[in-house]
Every structure is written in C-alpha cells, then in structure tokens.
Nucleic acid binder design. Structure first.
Lengths: 351, 351
DNA sequence: CTGAAAGCGCTAACAA
DNA sequence: TTGTTAGCGCTTTCAG
C-alpha cells in the first residue's frame, strides 16, 4: 500500500490497539502505558516512518498547532527580523506560522483575521500599523489569544510588545540638546499610525522637559514614512523655518529624504543641520554621512512577542503584558554641534 | 450554544440534510442542487455566520489549502519582497502560507520539510540556498509539488524560478569592458551556494567572450556573502593583483565591503577602481558612490514562483518549467572608466 | 435532486 | 494498564 502509515498500522505492527499506540506516542499523559509496550510502539512507528496526521489530530483536539502572523508590509525592513524571531520561537514550541501581508489595507486585514480564525489558528500575532482597527479591537477580550507587536491600538487591553521608542527618542533629543541645539524639528508620518503617535509624543515631551515651553516643538506630518515624504516635508519646512539646526525624522527613510533635500538646498550635514532617524535599518550606517538613529534588537522583539503569545496560549486569562524592549541611541556622523552662533538667518542660509 | 455553527446547524435551519447543505455551499459541483434549496441554505449559513471548518474539510478531502514556504534567512533583503509576492498570489488563489526559516541549516531544512509534509501542505516553495540538498532532491519526482525559487539544485528536475543572473552579470561585464576595463576581478561567496555558481559561471563566460582567453578571469571565493567577507577578500586580493581596475562582487553586501577596503587603502571609486554589486538592495543607490548593480523585480519573482506552483497543483505531471525573470543593469556612480593609461603599477598604487 | 450513511485519522472518554 | 467505542465536521459515495 502506498498511502502513508496511520496509527492503526503502527498499532497493528506493534500488536496493540490504536488507542494504546496513540497513548504510547503521546509523551506526557496521565494514563501512561507500560514501558515495554511504549518501546514496541515507538519501534513500529519508526520502522514504518509514521508521522501523525496533524489534520486529524486537530479535528479531534481542537488545537491546530498553528499561529497566524499578520504584517502590514513585509518589505518594511524592520519586519523581517521580527518575523524571524517569531517564527523561530514558535517553531521551537512546536507551532507553525501562517504568514499574511495586509498591504496596509483594512479590508485585507479583516479578511486575513477571519481566514485565520476559520483555519483554527490558536493565536495571532498582529503587526499591522494603524492606531485604530475595528478588526483588531474586536479581538480584545475574545477567545483568540492575540499579541500586538510594534503597534498599539487605542483603548485596547491586548498584550503588546514593542521597542521602547519613547526612551529612544528622548535619548536622541538629549543628545541634540547636549550638542547645543535649541531649534529642533520633528518630521514624521501619518498620524493614523501607532508608531507616529508614540514617537511624536516622546519628542514633544522631551522638548518640553529639556528646552522648556512647548512652542519650540515643531512637528510636521507627511503622507507616508518614505524617502519622498521626507524630502518633500523638508523642502516645504525649510521655507518656513530657517532657524532650525536639527531635524529628527520619524524613521530612517524620512531621514534619508531629509538629507537629500538639505543637500539639494546646498546645506551640509551635520555642519549646517543635524539629521537623525529611527530604526537603524540596514546600511544607514554606510551612508554619507552615516545616520544617527535609534536602534533596537529587532529579532529579540519578535522572540519576546512569541513568548508572550505562548504565555497567553497557556493561560489566556491573566492580565495582558505590555512590554517594551530597550532601544539604543546610535550616534553617527549625521549629528554634530549646531553652526557657531552668528545671526541666525545667515548661519542657516543656503550657500 | 456557544460553539460555532456547523454544517448540520445550517442544514437544520434550512430544513435540509447536511449532505445537501454541503453541496449547496460548494460552488462548482457536478451533482448540483435546486436553486431554491441553494438559496435557503446560503441564507441559513449567512444568518448563522457559518464558516466551514477547514480542518474537518482537509481531513475528508486530503487537501489542506496550505503551502509551505521555506527560506534560508528572511533577513536577507532579497527575500521579503519575494515572499510577499508569493503570499499575495497564493492568498488570491485561496491558499495560506506556512513560513519557515531554516537559518541556512541543513538539518533544520530537513525538519521543516518533514513538518510541512506532515502538516499536509499541498505544495512547497523552497528558497534555501545550497546547490545540493538531500532533502530537496528527495522531493524531485515525489508527489509533493515543489518549486525552487532563486536557487537551483544540481541535477534536479524540479520547477524553478529565478532571476536571469547570467544575463545581468554579462551586461555588467559588457558595461565595464565598454568603459575600457580589461583587468576585472570577481569576488564572491561560498561555492556551495547555487547563486554563487550561476553568477560566477556567467562572469567567466563573459570575460572569455569579451576579453578573450580565460586567464584574465580572476575569481576569489569568500566564506559568506557579507560586508566583512567582501572587505577581507578585497584586502587580500589587492595584495596580489594591483593591476585590477574593476571589481565585480557576488552581491551588494560584498561590494560594500569591497568599497570600504578600497577606501581604507586610499583608493577612490570609481576613479581608481570601479566596483559593482548584484541584487540592488534597498539604499545601495544612496551610498557614496551609489552602487552599480544588477536588479530584478523581486516581488514579481515571487509572484511567478507562486504561479508556477499553482500550475503544478493543478497538474503535477507536466514537465517542470524552469523560468528566468529578466534582470536589469543599474548603472550608478561606482563604475567609470579605468584610470588613464600610465605604467600599471603606478596607476593603481594607493595614494 | 436529495437523504442516508460511511469514514478521513486521530484521541478521549469509558470499560474491562 | 489496555481495549472499546464514539465522534471531531465535513464530503462523497450510494440509494432512493
């Protein structure tokens, strides 16, 4: 017979009943079996190359051994290491990962979550980016264990793992203030994203704490976290605020756009204007100038997220953990002291 | 009752037999049902919020609706867009993606494939990197439809989708020769990887075709496709071959290492030595100098791989397609004419 | 065209 | 401790 061996085949070969064979193969079980039968069964299983059918098992046990991982856009460089950490950790726990990319689309997100529920995922790890999501909010308090990574949902009490962006941004502002900057602007992405709010709030707080009144915190929002958006925002911003000596971008891509716009305007970085990013994407340390940015251990973040989910799988009841993994300020060449004090308009005018 | 509705619930509500309900809900079936009953059943299903249980269905139909995607290392920047293309295409075809990262480990690869088979994946897309693999070879001719992406297996007849690296490398060498280079070296990664061989062979052929005898094709292998390996290889290579005016690297990371080593040796790129990479990773166009490299539509590659798999799923019999998606030479600032002819040793000596 | 019944492979009650 | 039995939810023969 060409079909793959079933537990009945194993049982037959071992001369026992299928039920017994099942118990023998199941490691931790209260009603154990004799060591001799266990050996016989294992032997038979090995000889036959028996692999249990997870489908049949799922149907019976109502546990699929599968976790759904939902990302907004896998081509965002922060995500792959996170997904890798998740996958590795879950694999070691005997769980497989279904991956879906929502392309930042709410309908797609809803469809993915529905599909993953239908497929009997035991848990969900959700990294999609918006601050609000009817789909994800609906999971809060439900019976499908869910962990948010990198994003937070307004008013949600779901467990959540992210980098401690606030500390990173604060360290960055501190660094700029230490260098002597007093006119610092923040260029960031859409206010609808969880990341935007966290970082922006941290920026405003840091400015208020370190430089006094809030009115010095200049913040501009772009349409997306891209090089283009960073470039455009910088161009239009430079038209209004020439006194600025340091620009913090919401992520590295925007910082790159910012650098390009400054260069195009004939300004040097960091001599005329300092620039910093966030995320420490691959290669930003190889740019000219190398980018000062906020880094975090991306893969560890994924590992932690998976561990939190494993905790929820064991007990979905206890209060949700909200964990932040540490960030680190990476100082590189794109930040330096502000231009030596001269009449401000002259000091920052394009060459 | 709190449990989710089954087909029997739907059938009861519609006043028909479960079997009939099943048929009514199944779109294309030979033995159809009356339009009126079909409507009743759909109505009942909608009211109950019925979702078929894929586990039970799988058990019965022996089709899981899941395919396995095996990657060597998701943090390699070429992979995420490919995986995204795969996921999107399969999602549209109603298939879900199980993702596993082997961390370039053969045992892990074997375990993953076994696990995916056990989980009743309908097909596999394998992107792991080595030229030989007992595990993957074993899939050849088996009943699990498998598509290789980005890699090839020696002597395998499995369907395979990759970028047309050979054309890209050839275009690159042509470009360098057109610029006037005659001493061109190739620095690449481990010979055990599929990618290494394809590109290296193309390089040797191009050199032989365009510059004559093979002895001018200088090739060095490093331990990995990393910045470090590129740097080390360049350092040791420069010790031996000062006449070289152009260096082609096996991928962009090595090219970056190469640039660093040249800079450290006081050489300018492209004035003293031209450098080129392969893959067009994010940001390599933003480096100083911007890197000349070989690009391909990564996401499309993933889409094509998924489409080929869908073809195999429909008919695993017909001969395996071996498809190459086009590459494009992206000329940027890191390549230029060789130094003006002077005594060779002087022309390439560090400043 | 629809109802009846069997069974995918496994595990968890219950009995012996 | 082991065998027995039932059944997870679905589809698909086979009758009617």
């Amino acid at each position: 017979l060409a079909r793959r061996p079933t537990i009945s085949d194993v049982a037959a070969r071992a001369g026992v009943h299928p039920g017994t064979a099942s118990r023998a193969l199941n490691p931790a079980l209260p009603g154990r079996v004799t060591e001799t039968t266990a050996r016989k069964v294992r032997e038979a299983a090995r000889e036959l190359g028996y692999l249990p059918d997870p489908t049949a098992r799922s149907l019976r046990t109502r546990r699929s051994g599968v976790v759904g991982v939902v990302v907004p856009d896998l081509t965002n460089p922060v995500l792959p290491p996170i997904v890798r950490g998740i996958e590795e950790t879950l694999w070691d726990a005997g769980l497989a990962c279904l991956l879906a990319d929502t392309d930042n689309d709410v309908d797609r997100e809803a469809a993915v979550v529905a599909e993953f529920q239908a497929r009997r995922c035991e848990g969900l790890i959700v990294a999609t980016a918006t601050r609000t999501s009817a789909t994800v909010s609906g999971l809060d308090g439900g019976d499908l264990p869910t962990v948010l990574v990198t994003r937070d949902i307004d008013g949600s009490s779901l467990p959540f793992v992210a980098a401690d962006d606030a500390s990173g941004v604060r360290a960055l502002v501190q660094h700029l203030v230490d260098l002597g900057h007093v006119r610092i602007a923040y260029l960031t992405g859409p206010a609808s994203l969880s990341t935007t709010l966290t970082r922006e709030t941290a920026f405003r707080n840091a400015i208020a704490d370190l430089l006094g009144p809030d009115d010095q915190a200049v913040v501009r929002h772009g349409a997306s976290f891209t090089i283009d958006a960073g470039r455009r925002l910088t161009q239009q911003f430079r038209g209004e605020r020439r006194a600025t000596t340091a620009i913090v971008a919401g992520n590295d891509m925007m910082a790159i756009g910012c650098l390009e716009a400054l260069t195009a305007a004939g300004l040097r970085c960091p001599q005329d204007v300092s620039v910093a990013g966030h995320n420490d994407m691959p290669l930003v340390g190889k740019l000219q100038p190398p980018l000062t940015t906020v880094a975090f251990a991306q893969q560890s973040l994924g590992v932690r997220a998976a561990q939190v989910l494993l905790g929820r799988l064991a007990d979905n009841g206890h209060p949700a953990e909200r964990e932040l993994v540490p960030t680190e300020l990476v100082v590189r060449g794109s930040t330096g002291p502000p231009p030596t004090p001269r009449p401000v308009t002259a000091a920052t005018r394009p060459a």
